[in-house]
């Protein structure tokens, strides 16, 4: 099966992420669906790096990449987070995370001499994708510093988990990316619920309700698609029983 290239997915994720930030910046909260693609792209790059048997676990890659992305977005929100200029904010976030991600990747390749093909590209992709997602989530939830750890860690798990959950000899890119989509929808769903609570009003704001509704629809579709693929990949599904050879 032909695999989707990193560049293709990343290009799409970058455009989609910027579109998402612009939409949310103009008050259209449904733009959160455009962050699903950056999730896919980041998960694909975690897969690209962890596939070669890294010296460190796939979990470390996930939280390292998200740390770069999220920290860039958190820092950038200091000077231009609250301005009505989402484009400037996006440009800042993308630049900072691209520089840090690329620099770390090049160092890992040249100084530490990890023999992983395209490590610098993959590092940059994880950093920029997660930075875009973080920037978007910050615009939705608002810049309450108390919520920053939550935004960081929930993106981390959604990014590192798809490959981690699918590891094994029968792993393939399509199933991993569909799982990434499932988890992206799950994450935006939780973000919607937290945004409802964070808005401070007694009744949920309709923008946040829209996020939840869209995420649930996406979640249902993604789970059905993913489970269909699981059924075609798996050896056997039984309700209960023992291994055939031994009984």
């Amino acid at each position: 099966m032909k695999e989707i290239q990193i560049h293709t997915l990343f290009g799409a994720a970058l455009l989609s992420g910027i579109a998402g930030i612009l939409l949310i910046g103009h008050g259209i909260s449904i733009g959160i669906v455009f962050f699903w693609l950056p999730f896919l792209s980041a998960a694909n790059s975690v897969r690209g790096m962890a596939k070669y048997g890294l010296g460190t676990g796939n979990a470390s890659i996930g939280y390292w990449g998200t740390a770069v992305g999220a920290t860039s977005a958190f820092i950038a929100s200091l000077c231009c987070g609250s301005t009505p200029l989402p484009l400037l904010y996006t440009a800042t976030v993308v630049t900072i995370s691209l520089v840090i991600g690329l620099a770390t990747g090049v160092l890992a390749d040249k100084v530490i001499r990890m023999k992983i093909p395209r490590i610098e590209l993959n590092s940059a992709v994880i950093a920029v994708s997660t930075a875009l997602i973080t920037a978007g989530f910050l615009l939705i939830i608002g810049s309450n510093y108390c919520l920053y750890p939550f935004i960081y860690i929930i993106i981390t798990l959604a990014v590192l988990h798809p490959y981690n959950a699918s590891t094994g000899a029968g792993e393939n890119q399509k199933r991993t990316l569909l799982l990434a989509l499932v988890e992206a929808c799950m994450t935006t769903l939780v973000i919607g619920i937290v945004a409802m609570l964070a808005s401070g009003s007694a009744m949920p704001v309709s923008d946040d309700v829209a996020i939840v509704v869209v995420s649930v629809c996406g979640l249902v579709i993604a789970v059905v698609a993913w489970y269909r693929l699981v059924k075609s990949d798996i050896y056997d599904i039984r309700w209960t029983g023992y291994s055939p050879a031994e009984h």
Partner: peptide
């Protein structure tokens, strides 16, 4: 960010 680099 810094604690993962040595792990490589």
């Amino acid at each position: 960010i810094n604690s993962v680099l040595p792990a490589y």
